[in-house]
């Protein structure tokens, strides 16, 4: 179909037809013609998203064996399992664009592909399970809800399901932290400490300021992105600050204030040097996270080889 289209129309016409579809909110599907740059942008973004889900299993996986009671343990297991599931849908969405899952994962392991920097921060206490759910999944939802209307069909559809689960994750995280905030002095301190450590990295999750975000304009034109980084960040702050106040925790930003006129919170400067250092690989856990993923793959090599060999043998037996 794509070939036929290419023979029938000039490059210019193809691009115009493509943009018309997007402007009319018609989804682009895997077999439709699309500009190379659109395909590349999506492969980069969706695979980054898939990698974030998979690497994101590790900081929370870190507390499964130490969860304080059976209910929390079961909920955390279910949450981390959801993340593996999200990774699976997203890798499948990348495959619809002609990318290979193995190669995509190798790009993560070689450092060529990125994932959300937030997962390069350590989870040091049980309260971090609350902070990660509340803030990290909360920020992820802000980013992801608009993606349910993304112009690329398979990605948009995957996001509908992902967002439903993420909103559970956010609520369970807030429930953990709220419980601690109402608890003993040690528990309150644990909750405040988690907020102190995760607040700024969560704001960084939305990416650089709009002026420094090179990929944004085209993504908005293509309706991959619907809102700018700064707009989403502002939305997150406006929603999250009252949630912190409600349970008696203090957002660690001395410049934070509510502007009555605009109806928005104003925040202090974000440490972008720290952001870029972590993106470059110099965060507290970058090395550990990638090494863990790499060794999972290496240690599983013989298992995958066995499964393939077995499938081949069975095929032969059936053929005979």
């Amino acid at each position: 179909m794509q070939l036929a289209m290419e023979q029938k129309y000039s490059q210019e016409e193809l691009e115009k037809r493509f943009q018309d579809k997007i402007d009319n909110d018609i989804k682009i599907e895997p077999n439709d013609w699309m500009p190379d740059a659109y395909r590349k942008t999506l492969v980069r973004q969706i695979s980054q998203h898939a990698h974030s889900e998979i690497v994101g299993m590790l900081p929370e996986g870190n507390w499964i064996t130490r969860a304080p009671n059976l209910r929390r343990k079961a909920v955390l297991l279910a949450k981390v399992q959801d993340e593996a599931g999200h990774g699976l849908y997203l890798y499948s969405a990348v495959e619809t664009l002609g990318a290979d899952r193995e190669e995509t994962i190798d790009d993560l392991h070689s450092g060529k592909a990125k994932y959300s920097s937030i997962f390069n921060y350590p989870t040091l206490t049980w309260a971090d399970m609350g902070a990660v759910g509340w803030l990290v999944d909360g920020a992820a939802i802000m980013n992801q809800v608009p993606l349910c209307r993304c112009s690329y069909g398979p990605y948009a559809r995957a996001m509908v399901r992902v967002c439903k689960e993420e909103s559970f994750h956010q609520r369970q995280g807030y429930e953990i932290i709220a419980k601690l905030a109402q608890g003993t002095p040690e528990q309150k301190e644990m909750a405040q400490d988690a907020l102190n450590r995760f607040w700024w990295p969560s704001l960084m999750m939305f990416g650089p300021n709009d002026d420094d975000s090179p990929n944004s304009a085209l993504s908005i034109k293509w309706k991959i992105k619907r809102f700018s980084n700064d707009e989403l960040r502002q939305q997150f702050i406006d929603v999250t600050v009252p949630q912190a106040e409600l349970i008696g925790l203090t957002v660690p930003d001395k410049d934070l204030k509510f502007n009555e006129e605009t109806g928005h919170y104003e925040h202090g400067p974000i440490n972008w040097d720290e952001f870029w250092e972590v993106v470059k690989g110099n965060g507290p856990c970058n090395e550990d996270r990638i090494n863990t993923r790499r060794s999972a793959k290496e240690n599983g090599e013989w298992v995958r080889a066995a499964a393939n060999a077995f499938a081949e043998k069975r095929k032969m037996r059936v053929a005979v």
């Binding site: 998979i54 299993m57 590790l58 996986g61 499964i64 297991l77 981390v80 399992q81 593996a84 990774g87 699976l88 890798y91 863990t292 060794s295 999972a296 240690n299 599983g300 090599e301 298992v303 995958r304």
Partner: peptide, 8 residues
């Protein structure tokens, strides 16, 4: 969790 030989 997070260390399996394949995602499945």
């Amino acid at each position: 969790c997070g260390h399996g030989p394949i995602l499945e």
